[in-house]
């Protein structure tokens, strides 16, 4: 099993990386860009087992450690 986690800055949090990439895209002539948010992607290889229990465990890790809920949101997928 594999956990795929996408971590992005919360909308209310200043995202200077996103803003810089956004203005670079505009300078390069790419049209229609309305916002860029730069985050992180984490992949975790997992032993096969009970899917629900695994999700619960990784969700806990996302909340406590892999993301900081003060400034970040996360999206977890198991495959």
């Amino acid at each position: 099993m594999k956990a795929k986690i996408i971590i992005t800055p919360k909308k209310a949090v200043l995202d200077p990386q996103g803003k810089t990439v956004e203005s670079a895209l505009a300078h390069m002539g790419y049209q229609g860009v309305q916002g860029v948010h730069v985050g992180k992607y984490i992949e975790i290889d997992l032993a096969d087992g009970d899917r629900d229990a695994t999700r619960k465990q990784i969700d806990d890790a996302c909340h406590k450690f892999l993301s900081n809920p003060v400034i970040e949101d996360y999206h977890l997928e198991l495959e």
């Binding site: 800055p9 949090v13 200043l14 200077p16 990386q17 810089t20 900081n68 003060v70 400034i71």
Partner: peptide, 17 residues
């Protein structure tokens, strides 16, 4: 200390990068 929850809030990347 912020990460540990001993202080509120967080420190993020400088606005200037």
């Amino acid at each position: 200390l912020c990460e540990a929850g001993l202080l509120p809030g967080a420190l993020i990347r400088n606005r200037s990068l």
